[in-house]
């Protein structure tokens, strides 16, 4: 019975959101806020793997997001969009309903491979250098996209709206809401399974004492590589969703500011805590909307908040603890075994 609680809650939440969107109980504005919230949850929890669990300082999350966004949208438009790009369509529009998750995964895979290329040189260098390497990589990615005319260069790339409308022709439901929701669930499950396994505990060991980890039989290079690839791959999926929700992307959407947003979410929530990272992504999205009238002022207030947080509660609101550690009742409700933590 208890095992069913999480799936049941998840499915009913999805049903509720979809029903509310279809009946216009939540208007278009709030629908898009919800979708960006989901994308932010993926960005935040995935970056948390590297910056929280592994204790490294990656500043280039937006770069991997860009790879995922471009790969999945270019693939989608090339395969399904009528007319124009690469002479398509090659596949009928109704297939988009089935192909969409594959397109997202393709974007995620491409981002993970990029992550591999970035992570390899950083292993030879010492701690702080991952910061530089990821910054440089995100500039290289952005600059590369700007120089590829076929995908629009600096002007950007569009046509994703055709794909989403092809899906609604099959069945008129808010598809993107569904996909974002599914991707969030997917991300949370993958990350939770990863960090709770002995394999994933190796990541915490690497953060706390890398030398001890290596000498106590942990293949530290592999752990770091896998974690970094997982993190960048999930960022790629978030990028793909971002592209289709927005319907238009350009290299300027994936600057250091975007990476900084992801970092702010991680550090607000507390490093190394999945629920912390997810909840702070929710809070951050809402905060950005609330502060929208302040325009540029919000980018003074948010950093100020983080500076104050670092002074008084540097480990973030959750700080390596999960929701279930803070409310033990919740753990009992969910029937989770003591993780020994």
């Amino acid at each position: 019975m208890r095992r069913c609680i999480v799936p049941l809650v998840t499915v009913s939440l999805l049903g509720l959101i979809l029903a509310a969107s279809v009946t216009d109980a939540i208007n278009f504005y709030w629908q898009s806020v919800l979708m960006f919230m989901g994308i932010n949850i993926i960005l935040s929890t995935s970056l948390n793997l590297v910056n929280g669990n592994m204790g490294e300082f990656s500043c280039g999350h937006a770069g991997f997001m860009a790879v995922g966004a471009y790969v999945s949208s270019v693939l989608a438009v090339a395969l399904f969009a009528p007319g124009g790009f690469l002479g398509g369509p090659y596949l009928p529009g109704y297939l988009t309903v089935f192909a969409f998750p594959l397109l997202l995964l393709a974007g995620g895979l491409a981002a993970a491979v990029t992550g591999l290329l970035v992570a390899l040189p950083s292993f030879k260098t010492r701690g702080d250098y991952l910061a530089i390497i990821t910054i440089a990589a995100s500039y290289i990615i952005k600059s590369t996209i700007e120089n590829v005319g076929a995908v629009g260069g600096a002007r950007g790339f569009m046509g994703m709206a055709k794909i989403t409308s092809a899906m609604t022709e099959v069945w008129n439901i808010p598809w993107m809401m569904l996909w974002v929701f599914a991707a969030v669930v997917f991300t949370l499950v993958v990350i939770r399974r990863y960090v709770s396994s002995t394999f994933g505990k190796g990541v915490d060991a690497v953060r706390q004492d890398e030398i001890a980890a290596e000498i106590m039989s942990v293949d530290t290079d592999r752990v770091k590589l896998v974690t970094f690839m997982l993190s960048s791959g999930l960022a790629g999926i978030a990028g793909g969703l971002f592209a289709f929700v927005l319907g238009y992307i350009n290299p300027g959407s994936f600057t250091i500011i975007k990476s900084t947003e992801a970092m702010v979410m991680v550090y607000l929530g507390g490093m190394g805590s999945i629920s912390g990272a997810a909840l702070s992504a929710v809070a951050f999205t809402l905060l950005m909307e609330v502060l929208r009238p302040m325009q540029v002022g919000k980018w003074v207030i948010i950093p100020m908040m983080l500076i104050l947080l670092m002074q008084f509660r540097p480990e973030g609101f959750f700080g390596h603890r999960e929701l279930t550690d803070i409310f033990p009742g919740l753990r009992r409700l969910l029937g989770r075994e003591e993780s020994g933590k």
Partner: peptide
């Protein structure tokens, strides 16, 4: 790490301020 984050945020405050 906390000091580095603070530095990054100080930079943002200066720019946007």
């Amino acid at each position: 790490l906390y000091v580095v984050i603070t530095a990054l945020m100080c930079g943002l405050v200066l720019e946007n301020g």
